[in-house]
Design a protein around this nucleic acid. Sequence first.
RNA 1: CGGGGCGUAGCGUAGCCCGGUAUCGCGCCUGGUUUGGGACCAGGAGGUCGUCAGUUCGAAUCUGGCCGCCCCGACCA
Length: 492
Amino acid sequence: MGKELTSRSENYSQWYNDLVKKADLAENSDVRGCMVIKPYGYSIWEKMQQALDKMFKETGHVNAYFPLFVPKSMFEAEEKNAEGFAKECAIVTHYRLKTDPNNKGKLIVDPEAKLEEELVVRPTSEAIIWSTYKKWIQSYRDLPLLINQWANVVRWEMRTRLFLRTAEFLWQEGHTAHATANEAVKETEQMLDVYAEFAETFMAMPVIKGKKSDGERFPGAIDTYCIEAMMQDGKALQAGTSHFLGQNFAKAFNVQFTNKEGKLELVWGTSWGVSTRLIGGLIMAHSDDDGLILPPKLAPIHVVIVPIFRSDEELIKISTKVEEIASSLRKQGYSVKFDNRDNLKPGFKFAEWELKGVPVRIAIGPRDLENRTIEVARRDTKEKQVMKMDDVATAIPKLLDDIQANIYEKALKFRSEKTTKVDSYDEFKKVLDEKGGFVLAHWDGTAETETIIKEETKATFRCIPLDASAEAGTCIYSGKPSTKRVVFARAY
RNA sequence: CGGGGCGUAGCGUAGCCCGGUAUCGCGCCUGGUUUGGGACCAGGAGGUCGUCAGUUCGAAUCUGGCCGCCCCGACCA
């Protein structure tokens, strides 16, 4: 029947898909390529939003909102960007329907209502935002302009996968303008750090900060930085990007400012974003065959309390106690769910909340009332312990911190075990096929080599790690000299 | 857009080869017994078999068109 998940080792993709659906996170919509994020899944996104938004504000950013539609001429102004996204754009060509004269009750697109200029549904908002910035920026005193937008974007993907790739997705995109290149570069790096910190401290997901190759760079950027995470099947997931745009968009949209010396200069730009894809990453980084494992810092429910009772009187007695416990935890800012449904057995509830990844479960029965104890189970290790009721208020917060730290450590350990240094192409292929994970190798830095390696091994260049130490070597493919090891992996 | 597969109740399916008005499980509703790791019994509701056409006395089943979905490629955060 429906509750058993496919095992991870059997078929990772199917396990992932099953899990997303059975844990009530999201489902495929009837609309082509689109996804419905269900309340439980969306509440994880809200948690992420809250944490990220706070970090953005702390680094001086403010939120704004720009239109969904981008006139085609505006879209094509920055050539590389337009070209890069051209193949996956949805376009509005008409603004009206009318009843079909030949087919009662049906509607057709009114040919009379053709737009003079087509509107592109934003795949990203650089174009519309920079055309607006032009109006906002005159003087160096208007800079830096540090704006973030929470929005949806549309990229017409051929093949979709819940959270990881859908035709429409939710994200945040930061767009900043600066007076100097140096300041913009600093901003790009700062936001990459923000993402890395978010991934590690909130998602408990270790990431490698790095720089993309020419081939994988954001269209229109000078440099693209990224954070790369490893999923439990050893594949890489690009979890966030931060771009140094140079003056490309300033040129395209003619965004200039008067500097202190009274001279006109083009501004320098950055953009950076993370999306609901992070939810996919969160799932694939931690969860097991019993379901989701959520880090306490992002779990919509921290503690679920399951009463064990035989009669209504028993339930009432237990409920009184539960309310005490729940309120003492809620006072400390934790979200507590009392699962007092009377049509389900405790065992069923245990399994269900495990599937949904609630970090801590408390069970209270008549036995506990007598002894003034509770049974506490942690989701990550599935360990159970009986503790004194009086200790709950102090023990649970500690336990949650423990879980947060533990799943990070576990993911970190997994990543280091699955990261391999290789020095020859044969070894490279062997590791990819037999072990998977990240492969650290010397690469000559050329697009040709990158493409051939991708074609032959399906592994893509992920990034040049920012903390890579200088090390003389030779490219595993071409034998040409190289100064650093870079990361290759099969990826999502 | 190429290659493969599928479309039957809210979900998962059997039936299709060999035509006779649809099977089973889960879920749902009612009543009862249960409840410390995915309960059980009894009764009940729920289906234009993706869609349109054709063949036929008769189509879930055969034929053709269309629509949609999934998997593998190409594309991608």
